[in-house]
Amino acid sequence: MFPFVDGFQWTFGHILFLTVFGMVVATMAVTLFVVIQRVLDHYRKDRVEHVQWQSDFHDLSEMDRRCRHELAGRVPRRECHNAFDCGECREHPKFEKIEPATTALSLEAFGLDFPADRLYHRGHTWVRLEDDGTMTIGLDDLGKRLLGAPDRVELPKPGDEVSVNGAAWYAFRNETPVRVLSPVDGVVVATGGPDQDWYLKVRPTRANPNLAHLLRGPEVSAWLRRELERLQILVGVTGAGAALADGGALMEDLPGAQPETNWDGVYGKMFLAP
């Protein structure tokens, strides 16, 4: 086969054979090389958390990836293709100009508290812009009820950086880890915790922080309605979701009230980390 083997003579068969297989092997080798280059590139540019979010988003089911404008009734059906980064979305500015069409849900009926002075991230955190230029990050009311009283939390230290859709902190409930996504980019300046109303105070890394992806105003209740529906389906099958079905107020400590539920699975869906 090869020129250095005794008595070798090239034939058309050899040339064809070697060319075809050479091309196949070369294609595979080049592709693997490109993959490794791209991996190294992510490391060089410190984009690991970003990739993790992209990957998690990809793993979410179609139902979990609905566009915020669908939830707000601005468009009948639309799946998000930008990993919930509305700043990157071309259609987002157009939709934003349309008046939301859904009837606002009375959050009070569920006993939920979603103050209007905040922006909400789809991973159940909120951001409040403070006068001193910092941003306060906390867990929203539904997130709080999902976790109940966490066994412990792992917070970043002041000086650590958090990046949007990366891990902000970890909470543990009944040995189930929950990766809570950060709604914004920033450097941690102070930490709170489950006992306080807030978890992190961050200083934005950029002068004009990108907040386009955060939900605000009447959108919030529309989104929350869908979230409660999702939760209903999740706990309806994984546990006895009687409280929600009856339209009663949401319990303060859901895992405590429904220990039979597979909360690990529910957390994966609700906190967008499948």
Binding site: M1, V5, D6, G7, F8, Q9, T11, H14
Partner: peptide, 9 residues
């Protein structure tokens, strides 16, 4: 065609 690839010439 006879295969002569490894046969002695």
């Amino acid at each position: 065609t006879p295969n002569t690839a490894t046969a002695a010439p």
